[in-house]
Design a protein around this nucleic acid. Structure first.
Lengths: 343, 343
DNA sequence: GTTAGCACTCGTTAGCGTTGAGTGCTAATT
DNA sequence: AATTAGCACTCAACGCTAACGAGTGCTAAC
C-alpha cells in the first residue's frame, strides 16, 4: 500500500498544516506553502484519492480536508520526523527534578506539571504501585500506651505507615520481638501475596504474643491492601480550553468530567506500554476519549515498572514533540526515583 | 439603614429567583411569583430605589435586575434562611467517611469529592499542616548498610518519613541510642521551631556518634521543612462548566487556570476562618476570583486547626445550601480525624 | 499527466426588520 | 400619599436574506 511520493507529501502537508492551524487545508494552501511546483488542480486530484483511501476527510463538501485517525496513524508510524531527544529539554527536566526534593508524591505531581507545561496539553500520572514490590522491612513503634505505629518498607523504597490501636498496653521489648518475628516471616514476600494470605499461614514463634499479633496483623494487611490504591494526578486541564476543538462547552465539559473519573484514568494508564505508545482518536478504548489522542509510557524503579504517565490532547496533536517529551520524562523520572529511593 | 419590609422582600425575591434561573428578574415576575398583592409598577418603583442604594444592578436599560455583591452580602448576613444542618446530609457524610479508611490524604481527597458533588460547585481543600503541631516521637530504622529511615510522629498523628543515606555503616544499637537522644532533645518541640534551630543547639550526649548525628540532623530538619508543604486538592472543576456564567470559554479558562495555581489557592485557604465564612465577588482579595464567591472553613484535629476546606462558585451561589454543607463537612472531618489519629 | 477555467456548494458574516420582555414616567385611582 | 394602569421607549435576541469567499469537482486544453 505505497502511496507514491507526491501523495505522501500532500498528506504530510495536510497533517502538519492542520496541526498548526486547526483549519481544514485546501488545495491552494498546499500548492502555495508546501508543493510550490504543483498546481492546486493536481493536488485536488490527489486529495480525492487520499480521501477515497481514508487518510483524509472533508467536514463538508466545499471545504478543505482534515486528517482522519487513519491518516494520523500513518503519519505517526511512518512519516513523522522523529524529534531527537532535545538536549536542553532534557537538561531542564533533570534540573527541575533535582530541585524537587521531598516526598515521592510531590515528585510525581511535579512531573505532571512539567509535562503539561512543556506540551501545553493535559498530563496524567499515577503514583508508584506498591503491589508489585517486595516487602523489605516492618517495624512497630510504640507511640502511646495503646497505640502502635507500623512502618512498612518495600524494596521500591516506598514507605507506608499505619496507626494501630491495641486493646491493652504492650511492653517495648515485646514489640521488638514481634517486629522481628514479622520481619522473618514476611520480608522478601511480594506485597500482593502478603495481602492475600490468611493469618494462620504466618509461621513463627509468637513468644506468647499471639493475641497481640492477631490484633496487629489484620490491620497491617489492610494497610497493604489500601496502600495499593494508586493515586492519579492530572495537570494542565485548562490548557485544552485554548484549543479550538474544545470551544464547544459541552466537549470541554465531557473532557473535564472524564479527567476527574479516576477509575477510568487508572484503567487507561494501567494498559500503558513500557515504550512510548500512541493511541489516536477512535483507536481509544473508551468512548469519551475518542476525539482525543493519548500518549503514554511507564516509569520504572530499579528496572521494575511501577507507574505510568500520559498526555491527553486533541487528535490534532503535536505528536512528534509530545512523544519526545514523554520519552524524556519517563527516563528522567526513572533515573531520579532509582537514585532517591535506592534502598 | 433599614430597608423597609417590602424592599427586603423584593430584594430577597430577586436574589433567590436569580440564584435559580441566572436570568435578570423583572417586576412582572416578582409580582406574579413572589409578591402577588403588589403590582409590577409598584415593584418597579421599589426596584429603582434598591438600585440607587446599590443592592441590585441592571445589565442594560430595559432588562430585569440582578443582585450586586452588596446585595448578596445583605442576603447572606441578614435575610438568608439559615438551613438547618440537614440530618440526612450529615448521615451521608458520616457514612462515607467511615467507609474511607486508609491514609489521611485519601480521606482529604474524598472529602473534597463529596463537597463538590453535594454542592455542584468546585471544592478545594488543604492537607493537614504539620508546622503547627508538636513532635512526639522520632525513630530511626536501619534499612540497609548505609540507609536509615527516619520516622517522625507529631501530636497530630501525622507521620512523615525520610530516607537518610549515611556515609558509612552504623551498628543497630547505635541507632537506638541516637534515636533516644533525638527523642529526648526534640520531642515536645513545635515543628516550626525544630526546623529553625541550628545543629549546635541540640543538647545531649551523642555517645560518640557526633559524626552520624551531624549527618542525620540536617536531613531530618529538611524533611520537616518540606513536609510542611501542604498539598492542595480540588474537585468538581467540571461542574462550573454547567453554569451559564461560564459559558464564555475565556472565563472558564481563567477559572481553571486559577484553580491550578496552587500558591494562590493556598493563600486563599490560609486566611480562612474557623467558622464558615463567605467572600462574595469583589470582596475577594484576588482579582481572578472577583466574579466568584468563596465559602471557607477550617477543620481541626484534637481541637487544633490544621487545615481548610472551601467551595468556589459563581456569586450567584446557593449560599444557604453550601454554607450548611461546608459546616457539616468540617465538623465531620474534624471528628473523624480526631478519632482516627488520636495518638 | 498536468493545469487553467468555470460552475457549483455551502458555511460564514453582515445587515435588517420584528418581537418581546422590561423599563421609566405620567396620570388616574384608592 | 401611596398605588396602579397606561403608554412610549429601549434593547437584546431571533429569524431572514443577501453577499461573500474558500474550496471543490469536472471538463477541456496543454
Amino acid at each position: 500500500m505505497n502511496l507514491g511520493d507526491r501523495k505522501r507529501l500532500i498528506l504530510q502537508a495536510i497533517i502538519e498544516d492542520y496541526i498548526n492551524t486547526a483549519e481544514p487545508v485546501g488545495s491552494r494552501t498546499i500548492s502555495k506553502k508546501y508543493l510550490t511546483n504543483t498546481s492546486p488542480a493536481t493536488i485536488r486530484n490527489e486529495m480525492a484519492d487520499l480521501e477515497e483511501m481514508g487518510y483524509i476527510e472533508q467536514p463538508h463538501t466545499s471545504s478543505g480536508r482534515i486528517p482522519s485517525d487513519k491518516g494520523y496513524r500513518l503519519y505517526v508510524d511512518q512519516m513523522m520526523e522523529q524529534q531527537a531527544i532535545n538536549k536542553s529539554q532534557n537538561d531542564m527536566i533533570k534540573k527541575q527534578f533535582t530541585d524537587t526534593l521531598g516526598e515521592i508524591d510531590r515528585l510525581i505531581k511535579h512531573a505532571s506539571k512539567m509535562l503539561s507545561q512543556m506540551t501545553q496539553y493535559t498530563s496524567i500520572i499515577t503514583t508508584p504501585q506498591v503491589k508489585k514490590t517486595y516487602l523489605k522491612h516492618v517495624q512497630l513503634i510504640k507511640v502511646n500506651s495503646d497505640t502502635v505505629l507500623a512502618v512498612i518498607i518495600t524494596d521500591a523504597g516506598i514507605v507506608k505507615n499505619s496507626v494501630l490501636r491495641l486493646l491493652g498496653d504492650i511492653p517495648n521489648d515485646a514489640l521488638e520481638k514481634i517486629s522481628s518475628i514479622l520481619n522473618e516471616s514476611l520480608s522478601g514476600m511480594c506485597v500482593e501475596d502478603i495481602a492475600s494470605i490468611a493469618l494462620q499461614d504466618i509461621p513463627g514463634n509468637y513468644a506468647g504474643y499471639q493475641e497481640v499479633v492477631k490484633q496487629i496483623l489484620p490491620e497491617l494487611i489492610q494497610t497493604l491492601i489500601y496502600s495499593d490504591t494508586v493515586e492519579i494526578y492530572h495537570d494542565g486541564a485548562a490548557n485544552i480550553l485554548n484549543l479550538p476543538e474544545f470551544n464547544d462547552i459541552s466537549k470541554a465539559r465531557t473532557f473535564l468530567n472524564t479527567l476527574e473519573e479516576k477509575d477510568l484514568m487508572f484503567n487507561i494508564l494501567k494498559d500503558s506500554q513500557e515504550n512510548v505508545s500512541v493511541s489516536i482518536g477512535s483507536e481509544n478504548k473508551y468512548e469519551q476519549l475518542q476525539n482525543c489522542s493519548l500518549i503514554t509510557a511507564t516509569y520504572k524503579l530499579n528496572g521494575k515498572t511501577i507507574g505510568s504517565i500520559g498526555v491527553i490532547g486533541p487528535t490534532r496533536m503535536e505528536y512528534s514533540k509530545v512523544i519526545s517529551v514523554v520519552d524524556c520524562m519517563t527516563n528522567n523520572l526513572s533515573d531520579i526515583l532509582t537514585k532517591i529511593l535506592r534502598v
